[in-house]
Write a protein that binds this DNA or RNA. Structure first.
Lengths: 166, 166
DNA sequence: TATGAAAGGCCGTGAAC
DNA sequence: GTTCACGGCCTTTCATA
């Protein structure tokens, strides 16, 4: 996955971040390149794993998921085996949409989606309390989502300088 | 935006969450509906705001963004005006990709993307330290992303029962 | 009111240059 | 990287239940 993105690649990525359904022709209107050349670059970006896929952005609340809860978790110890079994359990928990190993006081930060408080109680009982090796578990509720973005186009501006060519 | 999703709508949403570029014909192969009917439903979902858009999923690290940092923030007080000016500043901070008003000890949880530690130092200086009204600011680094999902298809299963019809 | 079928125009794909 | 031709998809219209 050692791939050097040029300005055109980054323009394509920026456009597809904004609208993942843009056609080659539409992209060619923004980017000084023929539709075919754009298609080839997109294919290369997909095959190299830089573009991991495409997805619809769906309104959480429209599908009844009113709550986001962050769960801070500390484990008994951080042995390899502890982490592995914990992470395997997290991977199988359907309501846990995010899990990050963290620096600092707690070991993991989980992100959970729930319909409402009663649903979160169920998730807490059925999914979270069964996670192995947990010593401390603290729930923190999102009261309001102020900003929810993906990678901003501005951060595609300069590639990681690992031997810039061209 | 009071919209009652039926089973077919949810099947369409689930499919477009997995692959946002599926064509009507491809969707019609999975869902017992003609391409025309699917196109009409998708259009309705888009116009009602349930589908907010489409985007490419891009490998963070491939574009040089190696770090995710969570920043916990406490404000001097939670007056309406304080919150508003803080949130306006956050909205204008390009490296801050997430901001949530939280319950519990801290007021806000920010999510920041950075190229590396030096880049985060710059962001800390240029973007974070200038946020108005902050009394406490604690950075917590993501060591490893274990799970990063969107809304799982399983959670589309049952709509929020607000007067189920049909 | 929502679906399904058919026709026309546009797009995506792969060839050659 | 571009141009061109072909096959398939998206769109619209219309008939139907």
């Amino acid at each position: 996955m050692q791939y050097t993105l040029d300005t055109l690649d980054r323009a394509i990525l920026a456009a597809l971040l904004e609208d993942g359904r843009l056609s080659q022709v539409q992209l060619a209107e923004r980017i000084p390149l023929s539709p075919t050349a754009i298609a080839r670059r997109i294919r290369a970006l997909e095959e190299s794993g830089i573009i991991k896929g495409y997805q619809a952005r769906i309104d959480r609340r429209a599908v009844g998921l009113e709550m986001i809860v962050h769960v801070f978790i500390s484990l008994q110890n951080q042995s390899e085996q502890r982490l592995e079994s914990f992470e395997a359990a997290v991977a199988a928990a359907p309501s846990v949409v995010g899990c990050q190993l963290m620096s600092g006081e707690d070991d993991y930060l989980l992100t959970v989606l729930a319909r409402d408080l009663a649903d979160y109680e169920r998730i807490h009982k059925q999914e979270l309390s069964r996670l192995p090796g947990v010593t401390r578990l603290r729930s923190s509720f999102v009261l309001r989502e102020v900003k929810a973005a993906t990678i901003p186009a501005s951060m595609l501006g300069t590639p990681a300088p690992r031997g810039s060519k061209k």
